[in-house]
Amino acid sequence: MSDAPVMQATGLQRHYNVGGGLFQKSRVLKAVAGLDFEVHAGKTLAVVGESGCGKSTLARMVAMIETPTEGSLTLDGKPVRAEDWADLRQSVQIVFQDPYGSLNPRQRIGTILMEPLMINTKLSRADREAKAREMLKLVGLRPEHFDRYPHMFSGGQRQRIAIARALMLDPKVLVLDEPVSALDLSIQSAILNLLLDLQERLQLAYLFISHDLSVVRHVADDVIVMYLGRAVEKGPKAEVFDAPRHPYTKALLSATPRAEPGAEKERIKLKGELPSPLSIPDGCPFAPRCWKVQPKCRAELPRLRGQPHGAACFFPENGTYPE
């Protein structure tokens, strides 16, 4: 197993033009404003952030549903271009948050699982079916489920089916867009176990997108914390969680409720709310809500510095900003 990343992104950006009627000039919304990361086989890169931080846009770019406005994405060292999507599709698949919306209600489970093979391979019907049945078993469902419709399944089972579909083409990278957020606690743990088990067996690279820090802490190897389209902190899980450098990461960690009544902890209260992504302030985007903001933060944009653990802050918590 070489150390080369399966997928690498450099300066990935995605902008949208919004508004722009007859009398209005359209404005540019920078959903993702420059992101670098690497995903390795058998490892999980978690992307954490609140709503509007651009993590879902990131998922759509990696899953080749949207083209990046700028920056590049490479898969196994080859650049990903819109023209090659059809060939590269098989290597990157996605699992969505809502298990109720992600399966076609008018298709049988078998058809759902065989569809990727039908479109992308020249396997015979019997081979397709054999492969689909095998996959059904792999994700912990029974053979008799093959001919049923999605509405006969519970949320957890549907998520298993969605995972099975994503794995049908033997992908190298699996984008998991909040895969357990819509599930009940008792089901959530079973799905997380399944995902970890599959990763180990198939050496999958996961891009795990979530807002739930306790889940991320459990599954991730590396973590990126995003705020308003930018990575504010990046590093190995243990370091990010135990010694966060960016004030936002620290606030996020302290705001996450822990299932330990009476636990002593200092909760950092953030002022105000997320600014509109259309009017991101100059300088550090977090500056208006930061409790240790300095004049420099409002004037200049801090870059993500430091390897392997870095933060985009001039005055980081556990360390200094290298000039």
């Binding site: 959530q188 997380l192 176990n193 970890l196 306790s214 459990h218 599954v219 299932a259």
Partner: peptide
């Protein structure tokens, strides 16, 4: 089943 109470990888 809470991930934060997990002691090992398998929940």
């Amino acid at each position: 089943a809470l991930p934060e109470r997990a002691t090992e990888k398998k929940l």
